[in-house]
Design a binder for these strands. Structure first.
Length: 479
RNA sequence: GGCGACGUGGCCGAGUGGUUAGGCAGAGGUCUGCAAAACCUCGUACAGCGGUUCGAUUCCGCUCGUCGCCUCCA
């Protein structure tokens, strides 16, 4: 099987056939950096991070472009509220965006173009549309004439005549039709602006994505993604202006949209005010857990945020993490049975041999992460069955199987961005001190000084360190 | 009003025309000095009503319900 994905444009699952053999050109609408990223932003960005990672795992070379809308009403307004220059505001939140996405283990895109760095391209595109009769200037503004583009509505599956014209669309004296949208906005006094053939102004929202995707990826690039609330009008408008400007060349070949992050089953959004920022959530849950939470549900399904769903994600993540530690513990113990007993590890061997195929089949089917993760749980389960026996002493075959299982588990988890070996502080005193305490407790237990042994364990527990006695000795972890 | 998605066991969440998803929580048990971790066992779920079929949770229709888009929004 090959990679299949759901194309919003055709509303069905299709095989992914890139424009250029093993190379994939992918554009994802990024954020407007005027505030802290919220969990809804993270959901979409993580979804496309998974897609990108999996495509690379499958041997594709991915050119991944993600923009920043760094000039826009929201930025100007927020900067005015705070009394800071609009550039400084955007710069600040771009930096924060990177910090937080890094924490969620989001791989950097190939390029992060900004609207303000591509004003020339934007102006050229608007000019082209004007020359070809799709756009008209009006008093310093330039609008796209929607009714001139016959295929308008194809992505969002709408008939122009069904849209409640004027009822909820921005009404403007300068527009010929309420559906028309701004390509270029005349500058109001005091607003940031750039010189243009229509006078000083700034780009409309939609045009920047067309200009930047065409610039970096060219027409008919492979995948265009974004949040589901961008389908209409943003992506619809992108298609209209891009295809109108390129003689009808298909703009993007596959359109992909993530599902909403909801809270109490309602869409989480800034305008509803019911949002949680990534920062807030990271104060309560480890970044690996948050990443797991965002990864364990199919990217197109709604994902409900609550303490309960996060707690469940935490427990599930811990199981995977603990499973990896269990394997590692046996491998590091360096003990091997003199007698071969390959039948004991046969089940694990079978699981190891099948896991990657299961994982791939799941991911090939429109990036089905829940199924892919189930394959990881199976691996952990088989390894635990083997190492959990009190009388277990690994033979050579078992050590090989465990070593393979461990490597595979970490590698496949990594393909969907789940980190099972969180970075430990290096060069600190923690490790030697812990092993000292564990040795002292072991001695106390051997001497039947259980009160002392339990005191050590309890005091450690109070400071968030959990001791676990296993057949291979005592281990510890933070809780 | 137009368009669309969805309704799976206590919870989260895949999937399929007839065969165990997976996870969380819970109960019992094994191991352990005790605890934790781990392992074993336990839940016969697919909104309702019709239809197609030898057989439907899975296909079709209707009803009910939830949610989304139609305005800035990931």
């Amino acid at each position: 099987m090959s990679v299949h994905l759901y194309n919003s444009l055709t509303q069905q699952v299709e095989p992914l056939i890139p424009r250029d053999d093993k190379r994939i050109a992918m554009y994802v609408c990024g954020v407007t950096p005027y505030d802290f990223p919220h969990m809804g932003n993270a959901r979409t960005i993580v979804a496309f991070d998974i897609i990108r990672r999996y495509l690379e795992y499958r041997g594709f070379q991915v050119m991944y472009v993600q923009n920043f809308t760094d000039i826009d009403d929201k930025i100007i307004n927020r900067a005015n509220e705070q009394g800071v220059p609009w550039q400084a505001l955007a710069e600040r939140f771009i930096a924060i965006y990177f910090e937080e996405m890094d924490a969620l283990n989001v791989q950097r895109a190939s390029v992060y173009p900004r609207a303000t760095e591509n004003i020339d391209e934007i102006i050229s595109l608007v000019q082209a549309l004007e020359e070809q009769g799709y756009a008209y200037a009006a008093d310093g503004d330039v609008y796209f004439e929607v009714r001139k583009f016959a295929r308008y509505g194809e992505l969002s599956n709408r008939d122009i005549n069904d849209l409640r014209s004027g009822a909820r669309v921005e009404v403007s004296e300068r527009k010929r039709d309420p559906l028309d949208f701004a390509l270029w906005k005349r500058a109001k006094p005091g607003e940031p602006s750039w010189e243009s053939p229509w006078g000083p102004g700034r780009p409309g929202w939609h045009i920047e994505c067309s200009a930047m995707s065409l610039k970096f990826l060219g027409p008919s690039f492979d995948i265009h993604g974004g949040g589901p609330d961008l389908i209409f009008p943003h992506h619809e408008n992108e298609i209209a202006q891009s295809e109108a400007a390129t003689d009808g060349k298909m703009f993007a070949r596959y359109w992909m949209h993530s599902g909403f992050l909801t809270i109490n089953k309602e869409k989480m959004s800034k305008s509803l005010g019911n949002f949680f920022t990534v920062r807030e959530v990271l104060q309560r849950y480890a970044p690996e857990v948050v990443r797991y939470f965002l990864t364990a549900v199919h990217y197109r399904s709604p994902l409900d945020y609550s303490d309960q769903t996060l707690d469940q994600a935490k427990s599930a993540y811990e199981r995977l993490h603990q499973g990896a530690l269990n394997m590692q513990r046996v491998l590091m113990a360096g003990v091997q049975a003199p007698e071969a007993a390959p039948e004991r590890s046969a089940a694990l061997r079978t699981a190891v041999d099948g896991a990657e195929v299961e994982f791939q089949q799941a991911m090939d089917d429109d990036f089905n992460t829940p199924r892919a993760i189930a394959a990881l749980f199976n691996l952990v389960s088989e390894a635990n069955k083997l190492t959990g026996d009190a009388d277990f002493v690994p033979d050579a075959a078992a050590l090989t199987a465990l070593s393979d299982a461990h490597a595979l588990l970490l590698r496949l988890a990594g393909v969907v961005g789940i980190v099972l070996n969180p970075r430990q502080e290096e060069g600190g005193l923690t490790e030697p001190l812990m092993s000292l305490l564990i040795d002292l407790r072991a001695q106390a237990r051997a001497d039947k000084h259980f009160a002392l042994a339990d005191a050590i364990r309890n005091r450690l527990s109070e400071i968030g360190v959990q001791l676990e006695d296993t057949p291979q000795g005592t281990t510890w972890r933070r809780v």
